[in-house]
Simulated assay, not measured.
Amino acid sequence: MSVQKVENVMTTDVAAVNENASFHTVAELLISRGISGVPVLDDDNRVLGVVSEADLLAKEEFKERYYGDDYRPPLRARIRHSAGSEGSGYRKSLGETAGALMTSPARVTTPDAAVVTAARLMDRYGVKRLPVVDAGGRLVGIVSRRDLIKVFLRLDEEIERDVREALRGRADVSVDDAVVTLTGTYAERSQAVTAVHLAENIDGVVAVHDELSWKHDDIADLPVWGGA
C-alpha cells in the first residue's frame, strides 16, 4: 500500500532569507514571489523561524497605533505595552532584520512524514505552510495546503490498486472520481467494518460507499459492559 509522503508533494524551490536579511529584503521577496511568508535560516541553512506579512506589518501597525497623529503615550503606558501581552508587537516594531521580525520556533515537518501528518500540523497550529527539514534541521523544501490537495488528484487506477492491496482481494473494489465502492461478503461483520476503515485511510480517497455484507454479526455478539 502506497502512503503519500511530504517529499512527494513538497516544493524544493524555496524562497528563504538569512536571519540577517533586512526588512526591505524580506518585503521585496514576499512581493516578488507572491507569497505571504518565508523561512528564516542561519548561516548553516538551519530553519530558525518564519517571517510573514503579519510580522512585517507589526512594525507599521504598532507605530500607527501608538505614535500616529503625533500621539506619544506616557512612558508608563509604553512600558506596560512592551512588557505585557503586546510585547511581541512592540519588539517586532523595533526589528530591522528577519531574525528580529520572525516568529520562532518554526513549525516544521520532514520529507518522510505522511501527508496527513503535515495536514494535521497545519490545522493544529493554524499555519498555511510548513518548512521541510532534514535530520539536521536544514531546509530541504516547503509544503503548503495547496501541495497537500495534490493527494486528492491521484488517478482512480492508483487508488483502486492501493485499496485492493490493503484489502488483500477480499472485496470487490471500484473507484470513480476518487470515491471507492466496496461490494462482497465477509464471514464476520467486524471484517467488513475493518475493510471500510482501511479503504478510508488510503491517500486520495474522498469517500467510501459501503455495500458490503456479512454472514455473522460478531459485533452484536459482544457483551455490553456496565451497570447501574
Rank of each mutant, 00 (worst) to 15 (best):
Y125P: 10
E64N: 13
V208R: 05
P223H: 08
L167A: 05
D13R: 15
S174M: 04
T110D: 04
V140A: 01
S36A: 15
L48I: 09
E96R: 15
S190L: 03
K215F: 05
L56Y: 00
M102E: 03
T185I: 09
G141M: 04
E28K: 15
V26I: 10
V175S: 08
K5V: 05
K128W: 02
L222V: 12
T25R: 15
R76T: 09
G137T: 01
T194L: 14
R65T: 04
D172W: 06
S36R: 15
G137F: 02
G99M: 01
L121V: 11
V115C: 07
I149K: 09
S2R: 14
S88K: 11
G227A: 11
I31R: 13
L30I: 07
L167G: 03
V180K: 08
A207Q: 12
A83H: 03
V108T: 11
V208P: 00
I35W: 06
G37A: 13
I31F: 03
R145T: 02
R138H: 05
T25H: 09
L167I: 08
V175I: 10
D218H: 09
E19R: 15
F23G: 04
L222F: 05
D70F: 13
S22K: 09
Y90V: 09
L139N: 03
E86N: 13
N201Y: 03
K63G: 00
V140K: 05
N8K: 12
P111S: 09
V26A: 09
L153K: 14
H216E: 13
V224F: 10
E160R: 15
T109N: 07
E60L: 10
L153P: 00
L56F: 02
V108W: 00
R80T: 03
L153D: 12
P74V: 06
V14Q: 06
T183A: 11
D13Y: 10
A21I: 02
Y125Q: 04
D221L: 12
V179T: 08
G87E: 09
Y186A: 09
T12P: 02
V175C: 11
G184L: 11
Y67M: 14
F152I: 04
R46V: 00
T110F: 13
S190V: 01
R107C: 02
A207H: 07
R80K: 14
R138V: 00
V206D: 06
D210F: 11
